[in-house]
Amino acid sequence: MRARVVLEVARTTFREFWRSPEAVFWTYGFPVLMAVVLGFAFQPGALPPVPVAVVAGEGTGPVVASLRQEARLQVEAMSAAEADHALARGRVALLLRLDAGEPVLRTDPTRQEAELARLLVERTLRGSSSGSDATLRAEVEDRPGARYIDFLIPGLVGLNLLGAGMWGVGFNLVQMRTQHLLRRLAVTPMRRAEFLFGYLLGRFVLVVPESVAIASFGVLVWGVPCRGSVLAALLLATVGGFAFAGLGCLLASRTRTIEGIAGLMNLFQLPMWLLGGSFFDVDRLTGVMRWASEAMPLTHVNRALRDVMLEPGTLADVAMPLGILAGFAAVCFALAMRLFRWQ
């Protein structure tokens, strides 16, 4: 294998990718964006205050004042028409008006916040009138490492490896085949291994840095811990990425159309999205589902990544999943090389 050829193929491959802004976005920008969006959706901390409307009129002053004592409520006084509109549009969860001095609460029962708003308002009003209601003591789980965001970030790194590995590698191979470029390369003295290594290098040079970016984002913004071996985490990203790239190569080894490869990719990716343990803990699965989950490389990537991020896992602790993933990659690449068709 000649390094010059490998590097030249790698450069060409990388350039082709880098010069397609939309491909760069979907492969590298989108996963980061998703991490940000999902992260904010599940970010740790208190829920935002519940918006409540009070219809302004005679005698509502004290009511508004007492409701404003409750920090979890965001109270706004407005006209009856404005309040109706706000409730209809879901801008407030509850509408309060005084009927002959008696408070009347109106809520939209299909909104989840409605019940919370009702309870809070009732309690606040009762408390202020009698002054006898004892406050309930409540505890929230907010220690880093135990929150959903902590669970989610390693899972998103895994999903990114899955996407970049399979789509980035498999899809383009088929595209090069459909445009007869593979055939053209096959009639040069370029060797198969040179092409494969160069191609993977070109497609892969950004995969590990991107995993680092997603994980760092979680660590820096949400305080997701990284308690184990960083080296093990990097190794996991690399080997995991190669496992998915191997699968992508294998699926692309004979596929002749873009539609064909898109279908095959989805066939293999969707189950992994669902059962690969990125969004929920697969250890709670049983039976066939559990068995299927264990057969997926993503499950092993995710579990091992959590071991080295959320727990003080060492390289030795993740040697087993690393071995499984390396074996999976080796089998996939070996099969892909055997089955591969230039045309």
């Binding site: 030249e8 193929v9 450069r11 350039r15 445009q179 007869h180 470029l181 040069t188």
Partner: peptide, 20 residues
């Protein structure tokens, strides 16, 4: 044959030249 769409003429030739 369609070569790499984003590659320039010189870059395409450089790739093929590397094989020889």
């Amino acid at each position: 044959t369609k070569f790499h769409e984003k590659a320039t003429v010189r870059e395409t030739l450089q790739l093929f030249r590397s094989f020889f």
